[in-house]
């Protein structure tokens, strides 16, 4: 078995790389795939928190590289889903503790026994990024509809294009706020796709549920009712090769919005 190695990257920090990694990983595992998540953000590890696994980590990626343990020993199994495991980053070391070749080796070993290896990349374009990308053949570029995040995503796309090993890269637009797009206060999905000219793999609406899910250490894909959870489940299905339409975020949900919409339609008829 040879699994797919996908790096999740963004350039800018705080756009939701780790949240995306945790959710896509969980969704893929729920769909019956064997998945390993690798946190490569050495010194600033967080993926364990989002999965609620912070108390179970014994060995980290640096322990594997420095041969204090075997790779299998360092993999932490998810609480709910035995298909999902995490290789945590070392919290006490910096990015120089690992090099690209070592990470590639780990990815190559892991993909032998897993369907998916998802690499959560640190922010920035330096060593940490180069390491995370080294073993991957696909990439998901996470961005938000804000100027700074888009500019950084463009830079990342440029760097990914220059890498021969990366066969395909796709855009995940996070924290989309339909009401702001409607009032022309936020760039629309089409605007961002046009500017970056990169195929989309997902549109995730801004969802306060993300905060509570992070608080609990449980990815939002586990919440059947959350819109962001549904959006992430759709992303996982698209990664698996299914054609899933993007969520229609324009639908007015509130009572007032419905009235407003009705008036707008009436006016348009007259």
């Amino acid at each position: 078995m040879t699994g797919r190695v996908i790096v999740i990257t963004s350039g800018k920090g705080g756009v939701g790389k780790t949240t995306t990694s945790a959710n896509i990983g969980t969704a893929l595992a729920k769909a019956g795939n064997k998945v390993v998540l690798i946190d490569t953000d050495l010194g600033l590890r967080n993926l364990d928190l989002l999965l609620g696994l912070e108390n179970r980590i014994v060995y980290t990626i640096v322990d594997v590289i420095e041969e204090r343990c075997k790779l299998k020993q360092a993999l932490v199994k998810d609480k709910k889903n035995p298909n999902l495991s995490l290789l945590a980053a070392a919290q006490t070391r910096d990015k120089t503790a690992v090099n690209a070749e070592q990470l590639k080796e780990i990815c190559d070993t892991l993909k032998e026994e897993n369907d998916f290896v998802l690499v959560d990349c640190p922010a920035g374009i330096e060593q940490g990024f180069q390491n995370a990308v080294a073993g991957a053949s696909e990439a998901i570029v996470v961005t938000t509809p804000e100027m700074s995040a888009i500019r950084d995503a463009d830079r990342i796309i440029g760097l990914l294009e220059a890498k021969e090993e990366i066969k395909s890269y796709k855009l995940l637009l996070n924290r989309v706020r339909p009401n702001l797009i409607k009032s022309n206060e936020m760039m629309s999905v089409d605007d961002v796709v046009e500017i970056l000219s990169c195929p989309l793999v997902g549109i995730i609406p801004e969802d306060t549920g993300i905060i509570t899910s992070t608080n609990k250490g449980e990815p939002i894909v586990n919440d059947e009712n959350a819109l962001a959870g549904k959006a992430y489940r759709n992303v996982a299905q698209r990664i698996l090769g299914e054609e899933v339409p993007f969520l229609d975020l324009d639908e007015p949900k509130g009572f007032m919005a419905k009235i407003k919409n009705a008036f707008a339609k009436l006016k348009a008829k007259v």
Binding site: I150, R151, N184, E185, M186, M187, I195, K260
Partner: peptide
Amino acid sequence: FRPQEEQGDASKSVATNRLKLVLMQDR
């Protein structure tokens, strides 16, 4: 009572234009 689309281009178009220019310079 006005449909939202008619409420004029706000900060979005400013952002798009600024971004396009800066990206061209970057690229």
